[in-house]
């Protein structure tokens, strides 16, 4: 009485294969996270985030990864429903049989990990699409001084090119005009202080900018503006509550992974006394090292910053 017309072993192989693929992803994600530990003001971390957010190969894998998670979850739920149906009347005395560590709670540990994944997506992943923005509300803030420096640099560059004869005087003038036109809203807001809700009282910051306004006031250069994951990460983990939830989720993930890795080998028929011990050790090592690697980041932010 299977819910989907697939053999039980086929379903198991599917969930194991997809799980194995997800296992490859975790150490990579961990490696990227650990870039935050470098004392370079977040240079590496921002570069990594930029690469992950823009590279097209990464984007393809992103789609495959999300589909894998969904397949894993759907098959897990299907199997659980079938398994529950196979024993309509439960035993009065709970089972006292010794079983493999973590194996009885896979659907629950998996559920916790999935719930955590949703929180994680809201906090980090969706930010990329501008659905949730780094500021308290959905807005950006830009320092006037920074923006002016940015503009001055661009003017200086044009002048330099004209002086060195790379471009003609007319072309330079044309470029200057275009630049002035592009930054007109910014210059206007500086001179007139209008619209007043977009500039802070001391006149040092442009505030309450939406993504469109950011481009409008701060120029086309901000079209590809990326949220600052480094600051965001530090801010989030500085909240003890968030870090504790994160760490707890990692413990649960470790329990899930320990049985998962053992299970993958068994499901693929790889059970042999020559290497069974090695599989146990591999699973144990992976289930400890990977969550620990992830845990270093919040612990570092909480205690070393």
């Amino acid at each position: 009485m299977s819910l989907v017309k697939l053999a039980s072993i086929t379903k198991k192989i599917t969930i194991a294969a997809v799980g194995a693929f997800l296992l490859l992803f975790l150490p990579m994600h961990m490696g990227l996270n650990l870039c935050i530990l470098r004392e370079d003001g977040g240079e590496w971390y921002r570069n990594v985030c930029h690469f992950m957010g823009t590279n097209w190969i990464v984007k393809i894998f992103e789609v495959i990864l999300i589909l894998s998670v969904l397949v894993h979850v759907v098959v897990a739920i299907l199997l659980t429903i079938e398994n529950r149906k196979a024993r309509p009347v439960r035993y009065a005395v709970p089972s006292k049989t010794k079983t493999h560590a973590g194996s009885k709670f896979m659907i629950y540990t998996g559920g916790v990990v999935f719930a955590f994944l949703i929180i994680h997506f809201i906090n980090f992943y969706f930010v990329k699409f501008g659905i949730v923005v780094e500021d308290d509300s959905d807005t950006y803030t830009v320092e006037v001084e920074d923006l002016q420096m940015h503009l001055n640099e661009k003017v200086a560059l044009i002048q330099e090119e004209m002086m060195s004869g790379k471009i003609s005087q007319e072309a330079a003038q044309e470029q200057m005009m275009a630049l002035q036109l592009e930054y007109m809203p910014f210059l206007q807001v500086l001179q007139t202080g209008q619209p007043s809700e977009k500039i802070s009282k001391d006149g040092e910051e442009l505030i309450n900018l939406t993504k469109e306004e950011l481009v409008q006031f701060a120029g086309e250069d901000f079209k590809e503006y990326e949220p600052d994951f480094y600051t965001m990460c530090n801010k989030l983990f500085a909240q003890p509550m968030y870090s504790i939830i994160y760490l707890l989720a990692l413990v649960i993930l470790g329990i899930h992974l320990f049985h998962a890795i053992n299970s993958i080998f068994q499901t693929f028929g790889l059970n042999h006394k020559k290497y069974n011990k090695a599989i146990e050790y591999l699973a144990g090592a992976y289930a400890v090292i990977v969550p620990l690697g992830f845990a270093i980041v919040p612990l570092f932010v909480m205690f070393c910053k």
């Binding site: 009485m1 299977s2 199997l79 079938e82 049989t97 079983t99 493999h100 194996s103 299970s263």
Partner: peptide
């Protein structure tokens, strides 16, 4: 395996209670 599934037995989740 097809017959086992058809009869309504559950799926193995490698808990190894059977072996124990």
């Amino acid at each position: 395996v097809a017959k086992m599934d058809e009869l309504g037995f559950g799926n193995c989740t490698n808990t190894y209670a059977c072996e124990a």
